[in-house]
Design a protein around this nucleic acid. Structure first.
Lengths: 137, 137
DNA sequence: GGTGAAAACTAGTCGGC
DNA sequence: GCCGACTAGTTTTCACC
């Protein structure tokens, strides 16, 4: 399905998502057009879901990075899930998990005050366990 | 520091990291050049760390998504951290956390067999708790 | 699935506001 | 700090192998 050249292309796009097709072609020993065709195919197949920018969240006003493990009280998760939907500004990812808890949320907050408010709000629906990110490697 | 237009630019770049400066300018009511200048400034300030591609990991050969909470046995974390460095193919992110455990690792594996092997290997250095991602919203 | 060349578009560099 | 115009580079679209 994905040959070696496709994998090389994806590696380069992970490292630099805005590289020109011409330069990308040089790196994988193809012409710009051939590269653009392969990238287009990867997009159509859904291997490439999109492109995005990597931000320094310290500088964009969301310095507090937290992982919140969710323990649901009731059998119906929908009220909680609907609530989380409305908080997409804070909830970067919400993963349904096996293991301890039902969900693991990757969250960003402007301050501990905002985090505190969020925790109070979700506590209406669920119990939680909080892990604050100190650093990343 | 970041004005409203900068924030709009970042939003658009998060949604599409490969948008042309001209189209981006149209969205934020600026010319292409003015937009390019602002983006360049954001890059120089370090607000923008880079650009990348979003991949469907089911299709790239890493379907198993796991969060592994690490409990260190010894006071010296370095042997573990050095080992994790060599496994960057599997370890997407390694977060130092407060709360339960010392580290939280966001990992990707080609199969449960690879995950099993990885867990056996890190168990030489640390204890762990495993959460497998079932779905993402 | 790949190349090469022309047309259309985009980005970088000016001076001017 | 932004605009308009010019030049250089990139992408797109062909016909072709």
């Amino acid at each position: 399905m994905l040959d070696h050249t496709d994998k090389r292309i994806l590696e380069e796009l992970v490292a630099d998502g805005r590289i020109s097709m011409k330069k990308l072609g040089e790196k994988v020993h193809l012409t710009g057009q051939a590269t653009a065709n392969r990238v287009m195919k990867l997009e159509e197949e859904g291997v490439i879901e999109g492109y995005t920018v990597c931000l320094d969240h310290q500088k964009t006003g969301y310095p507090v990075h937290a992982f919140i493990t969710i323990f649901t009280k009731s059998f119906d998760h929908q009220p909680f899930l609907s609530f989380v939907e409305t908080k997409s500004l804070y909830v970067v990812h919400n993963y349904k998990i096996s293991g301890e808890g039902c969900y693991l949320m990757d969250c960003r907050f402007p301050s501990n005050e905002e985090l505190d408010r969020f925790l109070s709000e979700i506590n209406r629906y669920v119990n939680y366990k909080l892990s604050i990110v100190i650093s990343k490697s």
